[in-house]
Nucleic acid binder design. Structure first.
Lengths: 196, 196, 196, 196
DNA sequence: TTTTAATCGAGACGGTACGTCGCGTCTTGTT
DNA sequence: AACAAGACGCGACGTACCGTCTCGATTAAAA
């Protein structure tokens, strides 16, 4: 979202960006995304509105950036012994990262993204696409080493699995129960793994 | 959403509600949900703001109502010979109903619903829950008549299937390809149907 | 400046206009016209900015209105025995009305009017033109009753006299000394009055 | 207005000052004084804002300087055979120099000066006072050589005459008609010249 | 047939936030 | 030093909508 371009003129203070992100996120956590207005972020951070607008196009983008910074480490991709174990582990991390208020905030952010291209792109580029890329690669590996049947369709399986997670969050608004992850993964992989 | 107040005094004109819904939907279709403001709806329909607020709590609710009215008939629930055929048919109807601008609008509505309880409830009560209820019943029937294995978990299967659909729409923002429905349904039901 | 038009809809509260004018004038008196911003007027009067903008196009117009309301009675036109006495009396009233801070404010207002058509018009229509009209009529009378020579040119005399007053105020920024009015009037009328 | 800072370091480029003045004046001519902002002057001249602020305290001062540079030669003081001829000639030059857009700009400048001490001072020191000084001297000469009666009051006559000119410009906003100068001067000097 | 009470259009109102503009100051690296 | 560049805090601008409110004018059922 932020341009890092020239070396001409007074440089932007990166601490200011950090502060703005922090304040924005804080406001969004208590009070929802509608609480994180540019006006309030400016007030509470002691930064001028113009400084904010010089760096982001709107308040939601700041919150998104803060959110992505925060959630990144929590859902760091990890490989396990088997493809099923890998997928289960990653989804489990995602699900637990989205428990409580963080899930609430993601809901609001993805909600806002529906009517805001820029937000949508940030969300895709920095969260969805890279993780999906890694998962796809893991599928290819598993097929290559004969752990997974060659006719397994990674796209469909990933749509089913991540779909189920986000569906509960965004559409049916039900919490995640403990056996949920095992259940969806086992079902999605049914009959596809070589080992009995 | 609309209160029906009885007896004395000038009664509300139901044609006015219809007009308001129509105008609101129109505005939302061109220009997104943010284009359907109460102010503009009032202007363009020649209705006073107070008349609108007497009937709905906010603009998004009007659009939601209009949308649900419109989409209802398009995705009328239908039963087929087998449970798989039934599910495929219903998802196919949903998917084709959400093609083009109607999907866009749903995205906006569900987006708005993330930060708006009332909207969320309307969406659940009038679209998601009833359809899911019907699907659940169909599953029970199929199990009862031994078409489906007894250990099939309808909740999980439905989460996977509807999840995949809405995921494409809301999260990964990819269009539906022709073989998508067959692929997800076959995968979700794999090994659960009695007949080969 | 204010439209008084329809009887449709909730009527504007005239007390609000009064209050706004009062606050605006107050702000302008202490701190100059630049102190009377719409923002501050709204703050200090407890009136919403939108209410102000519904009634006036900008802050200076409010101050102008308040100023004209205030100065009107102070320079009420009055006729004396002779044309010279009449003119002297009226200019004397004007000069004393513009002593001190009121003159300061007029300077600011006329200053602002130089780059603002609306302001200029208000100033002309409500202050300059009507008073000049009256003076012109008095000249005609004086000529008719042979008090003033027929070749006296009212326009030129008035330009000279009011010019001298405003010139001191706006251009050379010098205060009025006690004999100023007598001096300019006697000079401007020199040789034009019938009586010695 | 410009500080001349001496000695060490890179010297200021006088051509830059010229350029700035030119651009500022240009902007003010089309779009009024409000169009000549420091920001825009910097932009259009390719000069940094800091360079401008090192030389002038604000945008209006630049325009004033440019204006005074421009108008100076146009109203160069000149002496004629008689005091009346001298005054007429000078006022005529002034009036024709202020025709059209130049008068417009002066209006804006004097307008701005009403709320800006520095501007006021520049205007007085560089335009009003020196010319008045010369006129005063011419009056003394005329009295000394008995062309003018000893009881003629130069201050009053000058206030009346220049007042009439500026009054038309700033207050009553009327254009100058051809006979205006003769009319005001003859009236102001009536009965004061020795010659019949 | 007259109440009587809710509806309707119109639009004023206090708010909140928007995104922009210009100010005058400051911090860079370059000349 | 001065300079181009541009960040920065600040204050104000004028606009858009929000949801509530006050008007006078219908409109129909109840009295």
């Amino acid at each position: 979202m932020e341009d890092i371009v020239s070396s001409k003129g007074r440089p932007r203070d990166p601490k200011t960006s950090e502060l703005i992100r922090k304040v924005a996120l804080e406001l969004a956590y208590r009070g929802g995304i509608g609480n994180a207005t540019v006006e309030r972020i400016a007030d509470q951070s002691g930064v001028a509105k113009s400084t904010i607008y010089r760096r982001w196009p709107n308040a939601a983008s700041i919150v998104m950036e803060g959110f992505l910074d925060e959630i990144g480490p929590l859902i760091a991709y990890g490989e396990k012994d088997s493809i099923v174990a890998t997928v289960k582990s990653n989804i489990r991390h995602l699900v637990s990262a989205l428990a409580g208020q963080r899930g609430e905030l993601l809901r609001h952010l993805v909600g806002a993204a529906q009517a805001n291209m820029e937000l949508r792109q940030a969300f895709l580029d920095q969260l969805i696409v890279p993780r999906r890329e890694l998962a796809r690669a893991a599928f290819q590996d598993a097929i290559a080493r004969k752990e997974l049947r060659a006719d397994a369709n990674p796209e469909i399986i990933l749509d089913l699995l991540y779909g189920a997670v986000y569906y509960r969050l965004f559409v049916s608004f039900r919490p995640f129960d403990p056996k949920f992850v095992d259940a969806i993964v086992d079902r999605a992989f049914h009959g596809l793994t070589a080992s009995p």
